Amino acid sequence: PVYLSVKADNSMFIGNDPVTDETMITALNALTEGKKDTTIFFRADKTVDYETLMKVMDTLHQAGYLKIGLVG
């Protein structure tokens, strides 16, 4: 499974590897070998604001990742 996490300080990680807004999709493409039907499990600290969550989800959708599971 692929886990994308947003921490309380808005830092992002794919698994244990830090990513930025600019590198997130490139890292996901490498990890999933470009398979856009891969489910991305998205988790965020409860203090992360809604705007940040939606920005990340919008970026995922624009890149073609449509299977996003929200996890606690």
Rank of each mutant, 00 (worst) to 15 (best):
E51Q: 13
L60H: 00
S11W: 05
D37L: 05
T47C: 11
L28R: 00
L4K: 00
G69C: 12
G72Y: 03
D9N: 08
P1F: 13
M54L: 14
L70V: 11
V6P: 01
K7Q: 14
K7T: 13
F13I: 05
D58R: 14
V19H: 04
D58P: 01
T38F: 07
V2D: 01
L60Y: 00
N16Y: 07
T23F: 06
G64H: 02
L66C: 09
V19I: 12
L60E: 00
A27C: 08
V6K: 01
T39R: 10
V6W: 07
A30G: 06
T39H: 11
L31F: 08
A8N: 08
L66Q: 11
M24Y: 06
D17P: 01
Y65N: 00
T52L: 13
I25F: 04
F13W: 15
M54N: 09
K7H: 14
T59R: 14
Y3L: 10
A27L: 13
T52G: 04
V48F: 04
V71H: 10
K55H: 11
K55Y: 07
V19W: 01
Y50P: 14
I40C: 01
M57P: 00
T47I: 09
T38P: 03
P1S: 09
L31D: 01
E22S: 12
F13T: 08
G72D: 15
A30I: 14
T38G: 04
K67H: 15
A44C: 08
I25Y: 02
T52C: 05
Y3P: 02
D9S: 07
K36Y: 08
L4V: 14
S5R: 10
V56D: 00
V6T: 01
T52D: 05
V19Q: 03
K67C: 09
A27R: 12
Q62W: 05
D37V: 03
Y50G: 10
T52N: 06
V71N: 10
L31V: 15
I68F: 06
Y3A: 03
A8R: 06
M54E: 07
Q62T: 10
L60V: 06
G15C: 07
A8D: 10
T20W: 03
Q62D: 12
V71C: 10
Y65C: 01
G64N: 02
N10Q: 09
I25N: 02
Y50E: 11
T39P: 14
T26Q: 13
S5D: 15
K35I: 07
I25G: 02
D49W: 05
E22I: 09
G34M: 06
I14C: 03
L53H: 03
F42D: 00
L66V: 09
M54D: 06
L53K: 07
A27F: 13
S11Y: 06
T47Q: 15
L66T: 14
L66Y: 13
Y3N: 05
T38C: 07
F13P: 00
G15Y: 04
N16H: 09
V2R: 02
L66S: 09
F42N: 01
V48L: 09
M24P: 01
V19T: 05
A63T: 02
Q62F: 07
P18S: 08
T38L: 08
G69S: 15
T26E: 14
M57K: 06
G72W: 04
G64Y: 02
E33K: 12
Q62E: 09
D49R: 11
L60I: 06
M57T: 05
D37M: 07
E51N: 11
K55N: 08
A27P: 00
A30L: 13
Y3Q: 06
T38V: 14
L70Q: 07
D49H: 13
T38A: 07
N10K: 11
T32K: 02
H61I: 13
D21W: 15
K67E: 07
T39V: 12
I40G: 01
D49I: 08
N16G: 11
V19C: 05
A8Q: 06
I14M: 05
V56T: 05
F41L: 14
A27K: 12
L31Y: 12
K46I: 10
A30K: 15
N29E: 14
L31M: 08
K7F: 15
S11I: 11
G64V: 01
V2K: 02
V19S: 02
L4I: 15
V6I: 15
V71W: 08
L70K: 03
K36S: 05
D45T: 03
G15M: 10
V71F: 08
F13Y: 13
F41H: 11
Y50L: 14
T20Y: 05
I14K: 01
Y65S: 01
E51H: 10
T32L: 09
K36A: 06
D49E: 13
V6H: 02
T32H: 03
G34V: 03
A8Y: 09
V71G: 09
D58S: 12
A30M: 13
D49K: 12
T20C: 04
D45Q: 03
P18F: 09
L60K: 00
A44N: 04
D37K: 05
P1M: 12
S11D: 04
M12K: 05
V56F: 06
I68R: 01
D9Q: 06
T52W: 15
M12D: 00
V48C: 05
G15D: 09
G15T: 02
Q62K: 11
L53P: 01
D21H: 15
H61T: 10
T26H: 12
Y3E: 06
T52Y: 15
V2S: 01
N10D: 06
E51G: 11
K46T: 12
D21T: 15
V2M: 05
V48K: 02
G64W: 01
N16P: 08
T39W: 15
T32C: 06
V2I: 14
T23I: 04
T23W: 03
G69M: 15
K55E: 05
F13Q: 05
Q62S: 12
K36G: 04
A30R: 13
M57F: 11
V71E: 11
D37T: 08
M54S: 11
R43W: 14
M12H: 02
Y65A: 00
L31S: 05
V56N: 02
S11E: 08
T32I: 05
L70N: 06
T32D: 02
M12F: 07
F41I: 15
T32W: 03
R43C: 11
A44Y: 13
H61E: 06
